[in-house]
């Protein structure tokens, strides 16, 4: 009983940690996806789910895109569609591409450091 409770508590801890990691890297992943191609909000959510398994609460992506736009890392434009409902496409700016390069370098460094830590004999 005690061990089962302990396992449950540990799993809650791991789940919380996973959620924090996901939140932490979400902007990074969005920038990677937008660097590949221009995307509209719903398509971006789809790509996020498809490539990372992140099931982001849909509405919450917009404040994030808004902030990236305020930071001038991305920009947006409206595209008329045959359906009559236009799509708002997001794309990277030059500044966004430069920032993403810094983020990728740091991510690689962090990843290598963690891998070497994990390889150290206990």
């Amino acid at each position: 009983m005690y061990i089962a409770l302990l396992c449950t508590m540990n799993m809650i801890f791991v789940d919380k940690w996973k959620s924090q990691v996901k939140k932490g890297v979400l902007e990074y992943i969005i920038l990677i996806l937008l660097h590949e191609t221009e995307l509209y909000g719903y398509e971006l959510l789809d790509k996020l789910k498809e490539t990372t398994g992140y099931d982001v609460a849909e509405g919450t992506i917009y404040p994030l895109l808004n902030r990236l736009k305020d930071e001038q890392l991305i920009t947006s434009y409206w595209k008329e569609m045959d359906s009559g409902v236009p799509r708002k496409y997001y794309k990277m700016t030059e500044e966004g591409i430069a920032i993403l390069a810094h983020m990728q370098a740091y991510w690689l460094e962090l990843n290598n450091n963690i891998l070497s830590l994990n390889k150290k004999p206990q």
């Binding site: 719903y42 398509e43 849909e58 409206w78 359906s83 409902v85 799509r87 708002k88």
Partner: peptide
């Protein structure tokens, strides 16, 4: 407009 687009998609 963006909400409408999202709901439509």
């Amino acid at each position: 407009m963006e909400l409408t687009s999202h709901i439509y998609e």
